[in-house]
């Protein structure tokens, strides 16, 4: 396809040759995309919690709160990142079956998946997942509930900060609420291909 490469680039050069002047790249100030909600002093975690609620996500503090919520929903079978498990294990009572390897041949056996978040964006209620911090892409995606474990110091205030600080990682996913669609008559349905419940767990 190197013939196509040359063909395309020479057509591009030909198309642009008659232009006397090319449009310059504008510089722009971060203030341009500063949201009204971020005026004044804002606590990132509080803002994140409020924003996450607006996109039908759920935020919890501490492993016991998570276990209580899982028990309430009767979700007892799940996956946990092996690095996190020693920190969370004590909170899980008997009755839970938690695996630390994810078996892709029986993805529907997992009702929840617990993995680490690399960070969060407060203004949008977004969790940031990366290849480096996610122990299994499938485990963070296919169970009905995904729990992303977050540390307070990893929360960016806005999108601008988060995007300019993107990690050197091949697969970074910003998750803003549960998987959803409005394809059928504009009616909102959650849990299409990904989690129907998106949880941020602060520890």
């Amino acid at each position: 396809m190197s013939a196509d490469r040359e063909a395309i680039l020479s057509r591009v050069r030909g198309a642009l040759a008659p232009l006397h002047q090319r449009a310059a790249l504008p510089d722009w100030d971060n203030e341009l995309i500063h949201m009204r909600s971020l005026r004044g002093d804002v606590d990132a975690w509080t803002l994140f919690q409020n924003r996450m609620k607006l996109v039908n996500g759920l935020s919890l503090e501490g492993a016991p709160a998570l276990v209580a919520w899982l028990a309430e929903n009767n979700w007892t079978r799940g996956y946990c990142d092996p690095v996190l498990w020693p920190r969370l294990q004590a909170a899980f009572q008997s009755g839970f079956t938690v695996e630390t390897t994810f078996d892709r041949t029986r993805i529907d056996d997992y009702q929840f998946g617990i993995t680490r978040a690399a960070g969060a964006v407060a203004e949008t209620g977004t969790l940031i997942l990366t290849d480096g911090t996610t122990s299994s892409r499938l485990a963070a995606l296919t169970p009905w509930a995904h729990i992303a474990v977050l540390e307070r110091s990893d929360i960016y205030l806005d999108l601008q900060h988060a995007v300019t600080a993107l990690a050197n990682d091949p697969n970074i996913v910003f998750c803003t609420g549960p998987s959803k669609t409005a394809d059928v008559e504009g009616i909102l349905i959650e849990g299409v291909h990904g989690p129907g419940q998106q949880v941020a767990l602060l520890i």
Partner: peptide, 9 residues
């Protein structure tokens, strides 16, 4: 504000 998933690959 943002779509649910924004992936940077």
């Amino acid at each position: 504000q943002l779509t649910v998933y924004t992936e940077f690959i």
